[in-house]
């Protein structure tokens, strides 16, 4: 029951990447999510003291990330509010989504985009960096996060930084 109710983050990511106006239709058939598997760590030391056994996620090891239906509903609601240019309301909705799904990159990315609209580029860059830390193993997350960072740096007048971020985004597009 629980597993089937999950929406893959990538479904949202893909939709959001196509156009800012696209919204997730609540009745859309949703692909089943594979269980989130921790990245298999490389060879373990056969013997010895306890070490950093939890290896960090390597690139592209996690194809999709599950998102609870409740958080997904809030993301859809926030996207509507954003389209209506109700940025404060959208930000409040996204913060609520964040509390439900704090480890999912999607609400962080969406909030970063809203912060750009609110002329708060420092926040936008910080939030996009958080998305990278949480979901940098997913190509689409990397592409969107770096593209948001590029816009944030540009808004702050950091042109070389923006260019660097843009190039980083292009590597994953």
């Amino acid at each position: 029951m629980f597993k089937n109710g999950l929406i893959t983050g990538v479904a949202l990511l893909t939709l959001a990447a196509c156009s800012t106006n696209v919204r997730l239709p609540p009745s859309a058939p949703l692909p089943p999510a594979p269980p989130q598997s921790p990245a298999a760590a490389p060879a373990q030391p056969p013997v010895g003291a306890d070490t950093t056994r939890a290896a960090p996620l390597a690139r592209d090891e996690v194809p999709t990330l599950p998102l609870s239906p409740a958080a997904a509903t809030l993301l859809v609601q926030a996207s509507t509010q954003r389209d209506r240019r109700q940025f404060d309301a959208a930000a409040a909705t996204l913060e609520r989504a964040l509390r439900l799904a704090p480890t999912h990159p999607e609400p962080w990315l969406a909030l970063a985009a809203v912060r750009l609209e609110q002329q708060r580029p420092e926040d936008a860059e910080g939030l996009a960096r958080r998305a990278l830390s949480l979901g940098g193993g997913v190509r689409a997350v990397r592409q969107r996060a770096w593209s948001l960072i590029a816009q944030a740096r540009q808004a702050r007048g950091d042109m070389p930084g923006a260019q660097e971020a843009r190039a980083r985004a292009d590597r994953d597009s």
């Binding site: 056969p46 013997v47 960090p56 990278l132 830390s133 949480l134 193993g137």
Partner: peptide, 28 residues
């Protein structure tokens, strides 16, 4: 919380005491 390796950072095996390079099969 997943903590993804940032760009330009990689993991290496070192000896846990001396910090010298070590193979993953080494004790410690």
């Amino acid at each position: 919380i997943p903590r993804t390796l940032p760009d330009g950072v990689g993991m290496r095996w070192v000896d846990g005491t001396s910090g010298r390079a070590a193979g993953p099969e080494c004790p410690g």
